[in-house]
Write a protein that binds this DNA or RNA. Structure first.
Lengths: 117, 117
DNA sequence: CGTCATGTGTCCTAAACACTACACACTCTC
DNA sequence: GAGAGTGTGTAGTGTTTAGGACACATGACG
């Protein structure tokens, strides 16, 4: 939960080191939230923001949106939509892969990408 | 949205035909919601219920919980958790499979189940 | 005929979610 | 030493979620 804030804070600080456009206030402004809100987010004083705000934040800080959403306890709604369209199929697949090692999942991703159906 | 209600109503009615324990009231009681609430759900007068209630309802009506959750616009939280634990990996996989035909996905499921990693 | 069960209408609500508004203290920098 | 910019504290707000309470009319049935 405070994972999210810590991560965001670290990412912003690291950018801020080399570019003063990454102050809390300026970042807040660019992602369209109040500075005080972003401050609270970074310090874990409030729950992670909505999906939309999280994605804007990820973009701004040059981070992977799916990772940031995950830290915020969420799953991108476009992924959810894919699952909802074929729930039995994807539910089965995902549960099957729950305990598979990364490299096994990756192998499948590559297999699929090389489009062999 | 009213897909959910229609589906539930149909499932319950079909069970009720052969067994009068499947009246709206009795089902409501067994899944621990107020009859008036279940009535509104079946007629799409309110949004689909929470994940927990949806799963109880699916069980009661002998339906696949993932399917019923999908009709309710939700994705089971245990699936979400799997994704959240390895967001990049699963996000990539799922997006890759978005447009894959069912049989291709099924083939992968079988492959994985035959545990070849 | 009484009563039991059925489905439904109306009203209400307690939390959670997702933020905004504004004031304050500190720092730097020109 | 004035102004600009920085981060933070307090308080409050609109919306959505997820239902509960209770009364009512209708119908079945013994």
């Amino acid at each position: 939960m405070t994972q999210f804030g810590t991560f965001v804070h670290a990412a912003r600080r690291s950018l801020q080191a080399g570019d003063r456009r990454y102050s809390l206030r300026q970042v807040a402004k660019r992602i369209s939230v109040e500075p005080s809100y972003l401050s609270k987010i970074e310090r874990g004083q409030v729950a992670p923001p909505s999906e939309a705000a999280t994605v804007r934040l990820a973009m701004e800080l040059d981070q992977d949106p799916d990772v940031l959403l995950a830290l915020g306890g969420k799953v991108s709604s476009d992924l959810q939509e894919v699952i909802r369209k074929r729930p039995r199929l994807f539910a089965q697949l995902i549960r099957e892969l729950r305990d598979a090692p990364d490299h096994a999942v990756l192998r499948i991703v590559r297999e699929v990408r090389d489009g062999d159906w």
